[in-house]
């Protein structure tokens, strides 16, 4: 045993200061057990309550702390503490440097080569506008065609009516000189009456050898048209169909145009100075002449044959 009565006070002092290692402390406790008188004197062991407050400053920061330092996750106080430690500790400084190097640095020279291919152009938004413009243009064109067609038909109707009036013909059930109708049913009735009258006259005059004219084929065509309208005089439905067949174009278009839907009579149509006669009106003019000739021929008295009279007298 190294502890004796001469050096016991040194060991006791070192023990108070906490400088004794574990082996020396054990030896001191054994000596004091043998010599308890040293416990009662001034070198008796006091209670140690004091704590070393600067432990943190002595500790080395661990790896997690260093990584957080490099990542910037620490508070400013902690960062300053590590910086202060690193200034006096070269090993710590080197450790921080290694962690700072362990960061990936992007190569800014590497660029995406096809940026222009990715970009979108404004044409995508212009395309619908073009499409709408095309639709609008189509609608306008159709509207223009509709108005133009109506206008032409109205003019043709006016011309035909004026021509008929100038020739003294009120109405004929043909496509070329069709009167503007009031109602479909009225047209059926009017056409039926007119058709019967004119048909009988024209057929009589056309069949007569004395009334052969260069317009004979036209007379036959009119006759056919009469047959279309008045083939079944007792059936109203068939008459209406016949009328519709003859006036197809005018009837449909006039129903769509509000100006034509307001029906008006022949007399209400303004008279134009145009005296251009259609083929039908010429035929009817010839028919009038033929009728005059027929009436004159009836006035002429043909004398009876003599031999016939004498035979009777005998």
């Amino acid at each position: 045993m190294r502890i004796n009565k001469k050096n016991i006070h040194v060991y006791l002092q070192q023990y108070h200061l906490g400088m004794l290692n574990e082996a020396d402390s054990v030896e001191l406790m054994q000596f004091l057990a043998l010599h308890p008188e040293y416990l009662e004197n001034e070198f008796s062991l006091p209670e140690i309550n004091e704590i070393f407050k600067n432990k943190k400053s002595l500790k080395k920061p661990n790896e997690i702390k260093l990584i957080n330092f490099v990542e910037g996750n620490l508070s400013r106080v902690e960062e300053n503490l590590i910086k202060a430690l690193a200034e006096n500790d070269k090993i710590l400084e080197k450790e921080i440097k290694l962690f700072k190097q362990a960061r990936l640095i992007p190569d800014k020279s590497v660029l995406f080569p096809h940026k222009q291919r990715l970009k979108k152009k404004d044409e995508i938004f212009i395309f619908p506008l073009i499409r709408w413009a095309a639709v609008l243009a189509g609608i306008l064109f159709l509207g223009y065609l509709f108005i133009r067609l109506n206008d032409n038909i109205f003019r043709n109707t006016q011309k035909t009516t004026v021509a008929n009036k100038s020739n003294g013909v009120k109405s004929l059930p043909s496509f070329t000189n069709n009167p503007i109708i009031q109602t479909p049913h009225d047209v059926v009735q009017q056409n039926q009456k007119t058709a019967h009258k004119k048909k009988s006259k024209i057929i009589n005059s056309a069949q007569s050898p004395l009334t052969q004219s260069p317009h004979q084929p036209e007379v036959e065509r009119i006759e056919n048209s009469f047959e279309l309208t008045a083939s079944e005089p007792n059936s109203i439905a068939s008459k209406e169909e016949a009328v519709k067949n003859n006036f197809t174009s005018e009837t449909k278009i006039s129903m769509e145009d509000p100006q034509v839907i307001t029906y008006h009579s022949i007399e209400s149509v303004p008279v134009e100075a145009d005296t251009d006669t259609s083929v039908t009106s010429q035929i009817m003019h010839n028919v009038g002449l033929l009728e005059k000739m027929k009436s004159e021929m009836e006035k002429i008295k043909i004398p009876k044959p003599v031999f016939f009279a004498s035979f009777r007298e005998e």
Binding site: E63, I64, I67, V70, E71, L98, F99, Q101, A102, R103
Partner: peptide, 11 residues
Amino acid sequence: FRARMKMREMI
């Protein structure tokens, strides 16, 4: 943390 540790080790 793991990635940094490995990289630091390599460096």
